[in-house]
Design a protein around this nucleic acid. Structure first.
Lengths: 201, 201
DNA sequence: TGGCGAGCATGACATCTGTCATGGGTTTCT
DNA sequence: AGAAACCCATGACAGATGTCATGCTCGCCA
């Protein structure tokens, strides 16, 4: 019997997934959580075999939870399910020790199968997401460029970005200009959007 | 027995919700669809009592489906479930004849209850979303301002917006300037973001 | 019928942005 | 040690953008 921890902020989805997984004879949902912090706390208590975690949750990002879990509870395999699969997330997730990565568009059979796969030590990444991640390639942005671009995401003017990054406005403009070139965009807003789409920030 | 049509592009969620609803004695999921178009086509054939539709789907927006359904199949009550509940969506949905509007954070009991409520002619809107919609208020944007602002969402330069809207660049700048004032933003990108957040576009 | 608001446009001005050249400091790799 | 890459900054310039004043047309409503 594989003991599962389920974390998703959407009650409906979580409850439904639990119902679905419980239909399988060899799977048992032993705990549920609605936030990343809750998931961590619960995992420390119940020591599940597999943690199925939603990527986007109100507090802690799914990847952060995965990282914490893989260091604290090595015996627990973590897998991530997500609605919006950005290429960059996959890479970060893998780096955080995640063993399975699925979009929510897969069927329930696949979910159950992957739970078994990761529990037995295997790995599984959705082929479509993997292909996307490969085609998106590595981020050409330097760490600083990524920082600045991230601050630019909300459409803030350059002066504010400079203040928030503790940089001079001129430097910010240089980084942004460079990022605009690397993303093939025509202004920083577009650059920020495409970088986000490719998972570079 | 209430006959339900379920539409959601995420197989996992859809299957799980179906499993969940089927646990109720008086509910029966008679059809499922993964896209808006598919949902419409299916509904025309099976004539469900209640349609439970996800707001965001690849092709047709959930609200459009609802509008079509309410005119073509008046006997079918439509309700919408969504992950990201923007205030504006609720208003548009209600105008399209939607009878129930829920975030996916609700529990499965609520879902089943609301299915029964709308089927018996009632209405149900999630209180939190309703409060948000009220606090966001009506859109102060004129139709044209909203159009232009929507085109600005992707970060395109003004000339491109002007071409796409068949307006002169000067006019576009006027609309955007006005929209920036109305949203309290400091540039059009920020304005577009906040307008989107409030459901004004 | 006159007033009003929305739609559309132009021109002018100040400011913001994107780009480029340049330079100095640090770390990393060879 | 030297090259290469990154980090930070400044200055200058052109073009994009935000703001304002102004004017025209059209449909709606009192």
């Amino acid at each position: 019997m594989i003991r599962i921890l389920l974390a998703d902020d959407e009650h409906l989805i979580r409850g439904a997934m639990a119902a679905l997984l419980s239909l399988e004879d060899d799977l048992q949902v032993v705990a549920q959580a609605a936030t990343g912090a809750e998931a961590l706390a619960t995992a420390r208590v119940v020591h599940p075999d597999v943690a199925v975690i939603d990527l986007q949750m109100p507090d802690l990002d799914g990847v952060s939870v995965a990282r914490a879990l893989s260091s604290e509870l090595p015996s627990c395999s973590t897998m991530i399910v997500t609605s919006h699969g950005r290429p960059g997330h996959l890479k970060r997730a893998l780096a955080a020790g995640v063993r399975g990565f699925l979009p929510k568009t897969v069927s329930s059979d696949v979910l159950a199968t992957v739970v078994r796969t990761v529990h037995s030590g295997g790995r599984y990444v959705d082929p479509a997401l993997a292909a996307e991640a490969i085609s998106a390639g590595d981020s050409p942005l330097t760490p600083r460029e990524a920082d600045v671009l991230e601050l630019a995401l909300e459409g803030a003017p350059i002066d504010e970005i400079a203040r928030r990054a503790s940089l001079s406005p001129g430097t910010v403009r240089n980084y942004l200009s460079s990022a605009v070139g690397k993303t093939g965009a025509s202004n920083r807003h577009e650059a920020a959007r495409t970088a986000r789409a490719r998972g570079w920030i």
